[in-house]
Write a protein that binds this DNA or RNA. Structure first.
Length: 872
RNA sequence: GCCGGUGUGGCGGAACUGGUAGACGCGCCGGACUCAAAAUCCGGUUCUGGCAACAGAGUGUGGGUUCGAUUCCCUCCACCGGCACCA
């Protein structure tokens, strides 16, 4: 054993040891309980960032811990390898996306290996490999057959200069990111997956996901957005034809208070009216250009314009004006709303602004208005009793909704309806670097699916996109083909699939990544569901919802036996770092990396400022944010690993904050972790040295012959084991587990008993420390385990230690004594003392008597093993 | 605007089921070692008063329940995250 802790040497040796034994390769084994621990696979952007390191460290700790608990643990890793950044990189440097992506994968794989994660690399997959994405295509064809996949038009952002479709993130202030040209909305044919068919099931099943964070379930429920209401039809005549304007409302009880209707700018009625009304046409154009549907627009001014058209109230027969409103969404419900200004805040402000009548039809308990109110009051929206509503007067909310829905239905002018916010999933992307959609367009036969025998439709890997449209559409070797039906020359579909498709089932493929004749096989049933899924909260909605949907489709096709893929979900918090800046002479802001900044403290350790190391001049602290290039506050994992070693980085990440909280990066914190590693190493080293000097076996422990001080140290070791086991296994918090081990190590370093029994206790405790820390800092622990006399023994295959119940027994315990809830003393009593004995000991304590003297004692509360509270 | 989350020393955090507030670490202060520095080790570190024993205050604000509240309930405030003007 080396005297000095040198992580570079230790980690290289231990990684070689694992590699030699194929320590992380795992096979299905029906004799053992299985545990599938999965971290979200990364996009191969080039380098790992600290968020990845945190994510995968959490997964690795859980995996290693469960393995030591006796589970057959699967922890795979792969690459979410299709996507836009590869195309952007190609445009910049002319390298084909395939090449760029595979280089990145190779580099990042080495990074992951240097961190010592126990991944089974034999199951590695990349979604850009045909052996993977062919099954996207295969399942898409099954979905087509089932009617789950279908074609309809959809609206996309069109850059007229580059003649290309832009992603939302490529549209900045309504302009194309590269060309700066105003983006147009275009309607093009696309393929959709009918996720709405599963809406009710996806919603209902959320209740069964008890292992998911409450907030993620809430976010999904809101996203699915079930709402019960009534579809109301307002009849009208146009060009001599009788038609209806449909609206959806959850407040059918306020129908008698309708004074206008508002339609979305894209609504056909708006389009019709605009034809003969240039001002309206201009207004509609404005609305469409605005960055609609963004959160900040919640505060946007509600604007509208009359169409000049009128519809008929389905019950009163009154004429109702139709407006175009910038706040009405075409994508929700019918793209039209009924305006009830007396009982809806938006409608109220709209009516006030444009002088529309306000008609109270609900008595919300505050009575009837004598005059129209000038200000909105949230109470107006409450449920109440119908008034001014003719035959509905006196009905409450539910009764009125039922009665009105029934009357509308009788006339064929409406019915109760369930409305979903969720819409079908558009998977077509007009991009090159993705999975080709397996269809062929034939002039005679229409859209023809590629026959299974011709799969996969291979994506050519040598193309370099230049930003002007999809290169597939210009590559005849890809484009030109024969119609599988009639043999006539035909054109291949050039759209590729949304990359969310790739990530919707990769967790299934890890079970059988080597199968080239089927998408999944029996092994999936052994491993699924994923027992622990770990990833960022940013995937709380889309990825997780799509994966749940996709798994259900595969279930319905008989391919898998689970409907819910992820049993437990841990959403790890973001990694933040300080932001330092300085305003330059020309008014720009310059950001400095925290590594180049020195923080200044006062004599009490409070932070008073910061300055740049290179010039000593002050810099401004702007708080902490997620690491990003633009704020120059990133930290490179690779530099840290070479400076401190993987174990110190892993230890710091797990110690600094609970996994679900944000983690504030600090260089001093990593130094602290490294310091702890050196300390641990030294304590084991000194113990081992002592053993070698005495050249004998470790004295055997004789629990019955221990002194009180020796028993206390042994009790500390075993009770730490109890806590650490619970913290990692049940509570999934690692910071407190590490703190407990640090405390134990502090105890051990003060325990300088060199008697044979003292040495035996130290040896036992150090073995426990090394075992307890091994999921977190696996390299150093393996080396220390060998140094403690287990040469060549793989710690990862050792069973997790069990505490000795006898070591935990305590003869005496300390009881806290309070007087009127305030701490006034402590007494030590035998552990098995009766309540009466504890009470009299407490009352007799000197400091307590001082406070109770001469006062009548009203009550004494005794909490077993904890405290006594004397009420006077 | 809505939904969700979080507020505890100089800082990150701990206190799991209502029972000793501040574990553990960082920073800071003091000491040992050293010619010196770094590293390492030892001690101290919520605030106020006191040499001390000890006393008082204290978990964003104001209230409530309780023998007892960081923990439960209500009000308000601040910050963070998500988004969907959802009819």
């Amino acid at each position: 054993m080396q005297e000095r802790y040198d992580p570079a040497i230790v980690e290289a040796q231990v990684q070689a040891f694992w590699a030699e034994r194929k320590a992380f390769s795992v096979k299905e084994d029906p004799s053992k309980p299985k545990y599938y621990c999965l971290s979200m696979f990364p996009y191969p952007s080039g380098r790992l960032h600290m968020g990845h390191v945190r994510n995968y460290t959490i997964g690795d700790v859980i995996s290693r811990f469960m393995r030591m608990q006796g589970y057959n643990v699967l922890q795979p890793m792969g690459w979410d390898a299709f996507g836009l950044p590869a195309e952007n990189a190609a445009m910049q440097n002319g390298v084909p996306p395939a090449q760029w992506t595979r280089q990145n994968i190779a580099y990042m794989k080495r990074q992951l290996q240097s961190l010592g994660f126990a991944f089974d690399w034999e199951r590695e997959l990349a979604t850009c490999d045909a052996s993977y994405y062919r099954w996207n295509q295969w399942l898409f064809l099954r979905m087509l057959e089932k009617g789950i996949a279908y074609k309809k038009t959809g609206i996309v952002n069109w850059d007229p200069v580059d003649r290309t479709v832009l992603a939302n993130e490529q549209v900045i202030d309504g302009k194309g990111w590269r060309t700066g040209a105003p983006v147009e909305k275009r309607e093009i044919p696309m393929y959709y997956l009918r996720i709405t068919k599963y809406a009710q099931d996806l919603l209902d099943a959320l209740d069964s996901l008890q292992g998911w964070p409450e907030r993620v379930r809430a976010m999904q429920a809101n996203w699915i957005g079930r709402s019960e209401g009534v579809r109301v039809s307002f009849p009208y005549e146009l060009d001599g034809e009788r038609r209806v304007l449909n609206v959806f409302t959850t407040r059918a009880d306020t129908l008698m208070g309708v004074t206008f209707c508002a339609v979305a700018p894209e609504h056909p009625l708006a389009t019709y009216a605009a034809r003969s009304n240039p001002a309206l046409a201009q207004f509609i154009e404005e609305c469409k250009r605005g960055t609609a549907m963004e959160a900040e627009l919640a505060l946007m001014e509600k604007k509208g314009m009359p169409t000049g058209l009128f519809v008929t109230h389905p019950i009163t027969g009154a004429e109702i004006p139709v407006w175009v409103g910038n706040y009405v969404l075409m994508t929700y419900g019918e793209g039209a709303v009924m305006g009830v200004p007396a009982h809806d805040e938006r409608d109220f402000h709209f009516a006030k602004k444009y002088g529309l009548p306000i008609r109270q039809v609900i008595d919300t308990g505050a009575g009837r208005w004598s005059a129209e109110p000038a200000q909105w009051d949230p109470a107006f929206e409450s449920h109440g009793t119908c008034i001014n509503s003719g035959k509905y007067d006196g009905l409450d909310h539910e009764q009125a909704v039922d009665a009105i829905a029934a009357d509308l239905q009788a006339q064929g002018l409406g019915e109760k309806q369930v409305q979903w916010r969720l819409h079908d999933w558009a998977i077509s992307r007009q991009r090159y670097w993705g999975c080709p959609i397996p269809l062929i367009h034939c002039a005679r036969c229409g859209d023809v699916p590629v026959p299974d025998k011709d799969l996969p439709v291979l994506l050519p890997e040598d193309l370099v996109p230049d930003g002007s449209g999809n290169p597939l559409a210009k590559t005849s070797s890809f484009l030109d083909c024969e119609c599988p039906n009639c043999g006539a020359p035909a054109r291949r579909e050039t759209d590729t699939m949304d990359t969310f498709v790739d990530s919707s089932w990769y967790f299934l493929r890890f079970a059988c990544a080597d199968n080239d004749s089927a998408m999944v096989d029996e092994r999936v049933n052994y491993w699924m569901p994923v027992d622990q899924y770990i990833g960022g909260i940013e995937h709380a909605i889309l990825h997780l919802l799509y994966a749940r949907f996709w798994t259900r489709v595969m279930y319905d096709l008989g391919l898998v036996k689970v409907q819910e893929p992820f049993e437990n979900l841990l959403t790890q918090g973001m990694v933040l770092n300080d932001i330092y800046s300085r305003r330059t002479a020309d008014g720009r802001v310059q950001y400095f990396n925290p590594a180049d900044v020195e923080v200044l403290y006062d004599a009490k350790g409070a932070r008073i400022g910061a300055r740049l190391k290179s010039d000593g001049q002050p810099v401004e602290w702007e708080g902490m944010r997620t690491m990003s290039k633009s704020k120059n506050n990133g930290v490179d994992p690779q530099e840290l690993v070479s400076k401190y070693g993987a174990d110190s980085v892993r230890l710091f990440m797990m110690f600094k904050a609970p996994p679900e909280d944000t983690l504030e990066w600090s260089d001093e914190g990593v130094e602290g972790a490294a310091r702890f590693m050196r300390r641990l190493w030294r304590i084991v080293y000194e113990h081992v040295q002592q053993r070698e000097r005495q050249a004998g076996a470790v004295p055997s422990l004789e629990p019955s012959k221990l002194t009180e001080a020796q028993r206390a140290v042994r009790r500390a070791a075993h009770s730490t084991l109890v806590k650490v086991t619970d913290d990692i296994g049940r509570r999934r918090v690692f910071n407190t587990a590490i703190a407990a081990v640090m405390e134990l190590l502090n105890t051990l370093s003060k325990f300088d008993d060199d008697s044979p029994q003292g040495q035996a206790i130290r040896h036992e405790a150090l073995e426990l420390v090394v075992q307890m820390l091994s999921p977190i800092v696996p390299h150093a622990c393996q080396a220390l385990w060998e140094a403690l006399g287990h040469e060549g023994d793989a710690l990862i295959d050792r069973p997790w230690p069990k505490p000795d119940p006898a070591a935990l027994v305590q003869e005496e315990i300390e009881i806290v004594v309070q007087v009127n809830g305030k701490l006034r003393g402590r007494v030590t009593v035998p552990a098995q003392a009766t309540e009466d004995e504890v009470r009299s000991a407490a009352l007799a304590a000197p400091n307590v008597q001082k406070w109770t003297e001469g006062k009548p004692i009203r009550k004494v509360i005794v909490v077993k093993g904890r405290l006594v509270n004397i009420v006077i």
